[in-house]
Nucleic acid binder design. Structure first.
Length: 531
RNA sequence: GCCAGAGUAGCUCAGUGGUAGAGCAGAGGACUCAUAAGCCUUUGGUCGCCGGUUCAAUCCCGGCCUCUGGCACCA
């Protein structure tokens, strides 16, 4: 069985989860679920980054121990995974012993090899912000901004990692591995970055300045800083006998935000691994950001909508659907609650949810609640089956290319076609006919709509696993163990007993006529005709 | 400044060397199994601007404008 290891970035616990965290987890989860369905042995890791100055300061502000602070806030991130139905196999925290041990082991290994050395670092230090400043932090007139308070030039001794020794190696590696970074154009950014000479990387902080970190094994007066702590999580979580578990390493995908691609994941990380004698990752997937231009405006009026509230209101599957359907992986996209409601109503409630409900109702009314076998194949059936063949052919390549938004789009084209098929057959008319041929067509139409619904449900599974299960259950069906065997058009449903009715995606209550932007009013009902 | 991405119907986007497409929104219609859902029909665009190559460019080339992101020790 092929193994497939993928990770999200670990989230910094000095703050609450937001849409960006949610998206990264959902995207990674969709890939993970898809690979599992394709038969891979998946290992999906996520977690939290808990060290550093900000955590130390936040804990102090609350008057609690940093560890206690981490214990509390990391729970929020775990809760987010549960809420979004994330199927991670592991959740790592950088304050765990298993992690700290590996960090120290690798630091020692590099120190022994001479990859880490001690040197003086001279710079401008802000006591108030407890950090070194950069030349770019200066105001145009050369002074330092007010927020830094008193700035003094100090010299500090620190440990450095010989990054620049590996610059040529990395450039060559990127040439040989053109698909190291997805999307491709981001790899160009990395190559561009490497045209400038690298400096060695400062990897320590003196403990008097930063207490909350992992002490260097060869000098306990220092803790390691940021990258040699956080990035290591990807291997510390699967550490086995002095190396990352060969069943999973090298990792198939590190899913990260575009903001931490260059330089941390695309430069520091491969070089760190190379220096340790460990293989680099197979690929990095840098996703874009959700912009919330609309939210900023409403914030000023105090009406800010937290996107994560939509999960509670509409369910994890609907939320996941929106994120995956709207975002072209790698690009940025705009998030708006209005847009969300429009998609929810149109795709999920009207097209899919309503289709499920009407299929169940017709099967009960015209078929006695049991899905009959198809008996004829005329133009309407042929058209629908042809479309399925086309959908099936396109689906897998799209998913393999991470084009999940397109894969969903094709699947919903098929869903719409099922609705159109039903109109063509009009079982409610066939039901009134006593002709044997019409009765055969009626049974065929019930079988066809049920089967096509089963197939559509199968294809939405990586994105909306709960919905797939509900639809299959409503059809009285339990999917087999091998997903790909579920893809072809079949007679698997013959004789299945269906449920009474099922409203999967209830339409939201009409928005209260509160001031300002009322989101997505439901369409005005048409007046029923008199008579 | 440098690098990259993007500028196509009201909105979100697809697209090909031969006088433009989808979904949503809008308009009209027939139906009733259904979450007043679904189906059918339909109104919208000098495809950022200016040149060039070509029989022919939205798609090729050059220039320009606008937007977004990155340009290191900051999660």
């Amino acid at each position: 069985m092929k193994s497939f290891y993928l990770t999200t970035a670990i989230d910094y616990v000095n703050g609450s989860p937001h849409l960006g965290h949610a998206y990264e987890k959902v995207l990674t989860d969709v890939i993970a679920r898809y690979r599992r369905l394709m038969g891979d042995q998946v290992h999906f890791l996520t977690g939290v980054d808990e060290h550093g100055q900000k955590v130390q300061m936040s804990a102090r502000k609350k008057g609690i121990d940093p560890q206690q602070f981490c214990d509390e806030t990391s729970l929020e991130f775990r809760a987010l995974c549960t809420k979004l139905n994330i199927s991670n196999d592991d959740f790592i925290r950088t304050t765990e012993t298993r992690h700290k041990a590996v960090v120290r082991e690798l630091l020692q290994r590099l120190f022994d090899k001479g990859e880490i050395y001690r040197a003086e670092y001279k710079g401008f230090y802000s006591t108030r912000q407890e950090q070194f400043l950069q030349e770019k932090d200066r105001l145009p007139d050369g002074s330092w901004p007010e927020i830094y308070g008193e700035v003094t030039e100090i010299t500090e001794s620190n440990y450095f990692f010989r990054l620049k020794n590996y610059q040529e190696w990395l450039i060559g590696y990127l040439q040989e591995h053109e698909n190291f970074v997805f999307p491709r154009y981001r790899q160009k950014q990395v190559v561009e970055f490497l045209k400038e000479p690298l400096n060695d990387l400062c990897i320590s902080r003196p403990r008097e300045r930063l207490e909350w970190g992992i002490p260097l094994p060869f000098d306990e007066k220092y803790v390691t800083y940021v990258w040699f702590d956080a990035l290591i999580n990807y291997i510390s979580a699967i550490w086995k006998d002095g190396a990352p578990d060969p069943r999973f390493w090298p990792v198939d995908f590190h899913v990260i935000g575009k903001d931490i691609l260059v330089p941390p994941h695309a430069v520091y990380w491969p070089i760190m691994l190379k220096a340790c004698g460990i293989e680099p990752p197979k690929a990095l997937l840098a996703h874009g950001w959700w912009l919330q231009s609309g939210a900023k405006m409403s914030k000023s009026t105090g009406n800010a909508v937290n996107p994560l509230d939509l999960v509670g209101q509409f369910g994890a599957d609907a939320f996941r659907y929106y994120l995956i359907r709207e975002m072209n992986v790698g690009q940025d996209s705009d998030f708006s609650a209005e847009h969300f409601v429009i998609r929810y109503n149109s795709d999920l409630a009207n097209d899919l949810g309503n289709l499920v409900n009407r299929t169940l109702n017709m099967t009960n009314r015209f078929g006695g609640g049991v899905i009959p076998a198809a008996e004829v194949e005329e133009e309407p059936e042929k058209e629908l089956k042809d479309l399925w063949a086309k959908t099936q052919a396109e689906y897998t390549p799209l998913c393999e290319g991470l084009q999940f938004h397109s894969a969903l789009e094709r699947t919903f084209v098929f869903v719409k076609a099922i609705n159109a098929y039903i109109e063509k057959r009009a079982p409610w008319k066939l039901g009134k006919s006593t002709e044997a041929a019409d009765q055969a067509r009626l049974r065929t139409s019930l079988a066809t709509m049920a089967e096509s619904l089963r197939l559509a449900a199968t294809f939405i599974q990586p994105v909306m696993p709960g919905t797939t299960e509900k639809i299959h259950a409503a059809l009285g069906y339990k999917a087999g163990a091998v997903w790909r065997d579920e893809h072809p058009w079949s007679t698997k449903l013959d004789g299945c007993k269906v449920e009474q009715g099922l409203v999967l995606f209830p339409r939201p209550e009409p928005a209260a006529p509160a001031a300002g932007a009322a989101p997505a009013q439901p369409k005005q009902p048409k007046q029923p005709k008199q008579g």
